[in-house]
Design a protein around this nucleic acid. Structure first.
Lengths: 318, 318
DNA sequence: TAATTGAAGTGAAACGTTTCAACTAATAGA
DNA sequence: TCTATTAGTTGAAACGTTTCACTTCAATTA
């Protein structure tokens, strides 16, 4: 693999000249620079990122760590982050699972954006002392240097619940996702407070894990016990869809017999019959904001933090 | 940021001892190693990936470059690749767009997997000389060191088309995705050959770009001209869905009035009404195979290449 | 006792860049 | 003609690791 030395040898100049030329330093005259670049091209010289990063002590790279590539939720977010980062000539790399662990243990990026519930608070606290800046999307953690940019789950769910109440539903249940996750807790609190402030009680609480499967299982249990509420507010769309599928197979009409709502507004939701009412987050915009914050953290070391608002998408499922 | 020197100073030993200890070299006794690791932990020492990569001349990292995070097609594939890579203690990083360009220009990974139609053949040919190994998923390119692991589009589409013919359709049109892409060409050829071998002609060809929107637009044009075929075989699911939506809005019954098929079997397809007939690729398995090939390229410098087969999913849309 | 072995640890070179400080040669100014 | 300036170029240090080759010292063997 050709290195800068090889280029210098062929060009008959010093290493420093090559380096300056390749980096468009103005002290190298146009004509020399062109010649050097030509040679570099010809022999297939690619600079070693390792050597450069080592010397410059930065990588112009931001790492985004996510739980998995499977969920329908991340794409827009990643595209938004990438859009903004690329505009500022930063490189984005994405990782999951074990790869994230490795990447976190070796400082390969200048900044890190994390939305991965598999990373424990403990780990997070540890690395937050060492690996700044870090923006965290899926929880809040006090007494750390983590910058959190969560969605305003509470507010959105509060508003959705008010809309449900306004339709006349009284026996309203909540279907939890993974308990203790930030998303679930804040959504539930918004739900509960809206109910209470309108003189209603939580009719029942069910526990899923954010997947379609868990929604389906839950619905089967409900059918067995014949204890259906008038309405189930779900912590996310996937569980809502799982519930609807099972209920429909058993002959229930939605929203005739029971109302259902979701959260996230994944693509499937508007194709399902009935179309699922949900909360839409403009994740592309959210991603852009996150990237902007990261950029200012990287340069100015400070940031204006921002809660992302959700938009109610009331359709046909309640 | 603490470095290995700091650890050595506190531990009262040499840099080499720290390095050996941290890398579990057997010449450092258990007790010393533990002490050193403790110190490293305490002062928040993280090894510099840059320095290590520079010295070791490898990164134990594989880069996967994709067109965008938006499509519903990549998730399983990425998960499959990651699964296999992680098992072998390799790190996977993923990039798109401009980030890919940067990453390709700096050698940050030991190997590269590319499925990005935005990268030109020319670029690909250039980097294939320098940046080996590279596995390419979305085309074939002769006279290069690229290893291609495309899907067996031809075979799958041939079989799908035979099934369509067996249902009695005669006037069968094809809806192209982006022309000249490998996927589109091979799917079309499989379609065409199946038709010809059964004594049929291609009834018409429409041109889309693999998106739902392009399918919708196309359907609108067809409605204007009132020239509907009996069946449209689409180069992918998204276009098929776009077409179906528009046709249904205009009162057409699918499959009563016209049959439609797709390719890829994205999640949406089995939720749409009618359920879309399509070709399923087990992308998780495909990803695992790709990763295995990459691994053997990385270690043994050779690979058994493999075409991934598709499975027909005949449902209700024709 | 002397020689040998082995365990534990160390010094220093090397990886491929960037960049500071210094140098040369040519030009401009006095 | 001499000095000051400037454009172009260069040598070498530094970044933080890994690892080869070597040393030291205690224990074992003959």
């Amino acid at each position: 693999m050709a290195n800068i030395k090889d280029v210098a040898k062929i060009a008959g100049c010093s290493i420093s000249t090559v380096s300056y030329a390749l980096n468009d330093d103005k002290r190298i005259p146009e004509v020399t620079a062109r010649k050097i670049k030509k040679i570099a091209d010809d022999i297939g010289y690619l600079p070693s990122a390792a050597a450069r990063n080592l010397k410059k002590k930065n990588t112009r790279t931001v790492l985004v760590a996510i739980s998995d590539f499977g969920g329908p939720v991340y794409h827009e977010l990643l595209d938004g982050i990438h859009y903004e980062l690329a505009k500022n000539d930063y490189t984005m790399i994405v990782s999951t699972g074990a790869s994230t662990d490795n990447l976190l243990k070796e400082r390969m990026a200048d900044g890190t954006i994390i939305s991965d519930i598999n990373i424990t608070n403990k780990t997070l606290k540890q690395i937050s002392k060492i690996l700044k800046p870090i923006i965290i999307l899926d929880r809040k953690l006090d007494d750390t240097d983590l910058v959190d940019m969560t969605i305003d789950n509470y507010d959105a769910m509060y508003r959705l619940t008010e809309d449900v109440i306004s339709k006349g539903y009284k026996k309203i249940a909540f279907c939890h996702g993974v308990k203790k996750t930030h998303d679930n807790e804040y959504r539930f609190n918004g739900f509960k407070d809206a109910l209470n402030n309108h003189g209603l009680k939580v009719y029942a609480e069910y526990i899923g894990n954010f997947t379609k499967g868990s929604g389906a299982k839950l619905a089967e249990e409900l059918l067995e016990n014949r204890q259906l509420p008038e309405m189930i507010v779900c912590a996310n769309d996937e569980m809502a869809i799982g519930i609807m599928e099972v209920l429909q197979k058993s002959g229930y009409n939605i929203p005739g017999d029971i109302g259902i709502s979701g959260f996230d507004d994944i693509e499937l939701s508007s194709y399902f019959t009935p179309k699922l009412s949900s909360v839409r987050i403009n994740r592309f915009e959210w991603g852009k904001k996150i990237a902007k914050t990261m950029l200012s953290l990287l340069t100015k070391r400070k940031a204006e933090v921002n809660k992302e608002q959700g938009e109610l998408k009331i359709r046909d499922s309640y």
